[in-house]
C-alpha cells in the first residue's frame, strides 16, 4: 500500500484512505458539480446523492466530475484499472475533467504482471475490457507537457480499507 500511494503521488493523483461507511462523504469532499457516476460494487460503499447515475450523452459532456470503481490498483505504477462496463465506467471516467476512482485496498496488486494475470482470465472468459489508467490524461504535442488532453485533467483515488 505504501508503494501504491507513493506512486499515485508520483503521477499527480491525490488520494483518500477511508472505511466503506465513509466512502460517500469522501467522494462528496472531492467532487465538483455537476457530477456523474456508476453505482459502486459491494464492499466499496455508496455514492453520495449528489452524483447522478446513468447519464445521458449530454450530461456526460457537461459533467465536471466522474466517479467510478476501479477493479484493481497496481502498486508499482500507481495505476487504477478501470473496467469497461454496461453502466458506463469507461465514458464516465473519461469525459469529465475530474475523475474519482474508488478502489478496495484488497484489490491493490504489486505489479503489472499480477494485474494482467487477473485480467487475462476475465478477458478470455467474459470478453472483458479495461483501461490501465495512470495519472491524468496528458500531451506534450503542443510544445510542453500539458495535463488534460482529451481526458481528465485531475484524478483522485479513494482507497477503501475494509
Amino acid at each position: 500500500m505504501d508503494r501504491f500511494t507513493e506512486r499515485l503521488a508520483d503521477f499527480d493523483v491525490s488520494y483518500t484512505l477511508t472505511a466503506p461507511d465513509d466512502v460517500a462523504a469522501a467522494i462528496e469532499d472531492v467532487t465538483t458539480q455537476p457530477a456523474i457516476g456508476v453505482e459502486l460494487p459491494d464492499g466499496l460503499g455508496d455514492l453520495p446523492e449528489s452524483v447522478e447515475t446513468d447519464p445521458s450523452p449530454a450530461e456526460l459532456r457537461e459533467a465536471s466530475t466522474g466517479v467510478t470503481e476501479a477493479r484493481l490498483g497496481i502498486a508499482d505504477y500507481g495505476s487504477l484499472v478501470l473496467p469497461t462496463t454496461a453502466d458506463g465506467v469507461e465514458p464516465i471516467s473519461l469525459f469529465p475533467e475530474h475523475h474519482v476512482g474508488v478502489v478496495s485496498s484488497e484489490d491493490v496488486v504489486p505489479g503489472m504482471a499480477d494485474a494482467l494475470a487477473d485480467l487475462g482470465e476475465c478477458f478470455r472468459d467474459a470478453s472483458g475490457s479495461a483501461v490501465v489508467a495512470t495519472g491524468p490524461s496528458a500531451t506534450a504535442d503542443m510544445g510542453a507537457l500539458v495535463k488534460g488532453a482529451h481526458g481528465p485533467k485531475t484524478v483522485h483515488a479513494i482507497i477503501v480499507e475494509p
Binding site: A86, V89, S129, T134
Partner: peptide, 20 residues
C-alpha cells in the same frame, strides 16, 4: 514509466453506445 492509458480492449467493447 508508463503512459497515462493502456487500453486493453476485447471489442466490441461493453460500454453503452452514445448517440449525442
Amino acid at each position: 514509466d508508463i503512459t497515462s492509458y493502456v487500453s486493453l480492449l476485447t471489442p466490441p467493447v461493453g460500454s453503452p453506445t452514445l448517440d449525442f
